[in-house]
Design a protein around this nucleic acid. Structure first.
Lengths: 249, 249
DNA sequence: TCCAGTTCGTGTATGGCGTACACAAGTTAG
DNA sequence: CTAACTTGTGTACGCCATACACGAACTGGA
């Protein structure tokens, strides 16, 4: 037997649990990768990504900082593991439902996960979905499109587009509400007020008109929520147009 | 005269150049905000956001680290200023063109700016567009929709959606090509190979089928490019559907 | 049984980061 | 001329990720 995936990145192998057969001596590990990842997720959940440092993580586990490095090659690797753990397995969607309903449920559920772990959007993307959970999300997204007329490449692009959209939109909403209620620091930023004070209506007529229409004056908890639904429906309308163009042809 | 915007965040006032009238003594400043911001952008352009530290910035300017803090309250503020400077003014779009063509040009040009300063996508979003350049991008996006049947709130949501899309998609492509060619470290990650080695086709049939179809085997410089156009057309199709639904009604 | 080899957790150390603070020198308004 | 203020600077603090070397724990083979 070859050692299967010697060419795979270490983090990917750990993600899929392909690291067992290498114990040729030494004390029994007192820590485990699962415990470390779980503690990392907990730390980030409580205090944001900034609160997740290797020293704080080790302290929470009751070990020294460097001991963590016996299980994880770097903090970047740890983040990859924590991300896959935090996003979790997607719930299965009814395959009998219409593809569009399936994708709406998929996207909404994904958004729920992002909201449960707001720090996830702060973790830099490291590549295509390589962990088991991320790949399962990808899988379910593709399955939802199975009965459409889209070609394989288009299906992959669509799911990637939706995943990107959910991530980015969630991040935007989080950042806006964070700024809107003044996280940590003092003054909640009142964007319409900023525009009124600073943007010359002669130079920014469309922006001024939008602000004057009171679009952004709603309570900041409501406005961005509709934002998600609006974008999702637009994207799905676009996908549906592509689907229908093939049907009628 | 009141001091106009004493309630505005410091960074916003600096963005719009509302800080002149306060010189009641002291040596003439040897540095200027513009020089600092320009140097910061240059530093990030050369070595990415990680290369932009306050000490390196000061060194490049020929001053001590702390001198920069006489002009900028924090590094976060500096990033806000650098972002607005790097994104630059949008080129004016032909108002006579169709709204959809205008938005395509708008989005493509925005993508060009992001590619010219790849670090921009790494700067955390701090809120709605508050700088003069960012606001001008917003303005032009809104203007492109002026002749459509969309309501003010829908226009704002559409432009926000497009801006979010361009940013997120550019970031995704950057991260993928970065991983695909192995930035700094050794092995370029071969995603199809990862899937083949690690993803059980029985559990991930749709993913396996996609990989088997060779979707991701194209040279990594071509695949993600089409990704941008695909997403953009889908979104615009969705916006067009909304527009048309009002026309026919 | 013993020992060579391996892996564990740890202690120490390095070089980076953002930035708080105090101070001397320069500049202006009264 | 002087009081008030701003400038650039030097020093210092606490935090970060992580390289490295060491002794202790454990294993498989002789």
């Amino acid at each position: 037997m070859t050692d299967t995936g010697s060419r795979l990145p270490a983090a990917v192998e750990q993600l899929w649990g392909l690291r067992e057969p290498t114990r040729r001596g030494g004390p029994k590990p007192a820590l485990s990768l699962d415990r470390i990842v779980a503690a990392a997720v907990g730390l980030a959940d409580e205090g944001g990504l900034a609160a997740l440092s290797m020293s704080r993580l080790a302290e929470k586990l009751g070990f020294t900082t460097m001991s963590v490095y016996r299980y994880v090659a770097s903090k970047d690797d740890l983040l990859v593991l924590a991300l896959d753990a935090a996003i979790g397995e997607p719930a299965e969607v009814d395959p009998a439902a219409a593809w569009r309903d399936q994708l709406v449920a998929w996207a909404q559920q994904l958004q729920v996960r992002y909201r449960a772990h707001p720090w996830m959007t702060d973790v830099p993307i490291s590549g295509l979905p390589a962990g088991p959970n991320q790949m399962l999300w990808f899988e379910y997204g593709l399955r939802a499109l199975a009965d459409t007329t889209l070609q394989p490449g288009e299906r992959a692009s669509t799911v990637l587009l939706l995943a990107t959209f959910v991530r980015a939109q969630t991040q935007l909403v989080q950042d806006l509400t964070r700024a809107g209620r003044g996280a940590g620091g003092e003054p909640p930023v009142d964007w319409p007020e900023v525009v009124r004070q600073v943007a010359d209506p002669a130079r920014f007529p469309a922006v001024a008109a939008t602000v004057a229409a009171g679009i952004f004056d709603d309570d900041p908890d409501e406005f961005p929520d509709d934002e998600f639904g609006f974008g999702l429906q637009r994207i799905l309308d676009g996908v549906e147009a592509l689907h229908r163009s093939r049907v009628s042809a």
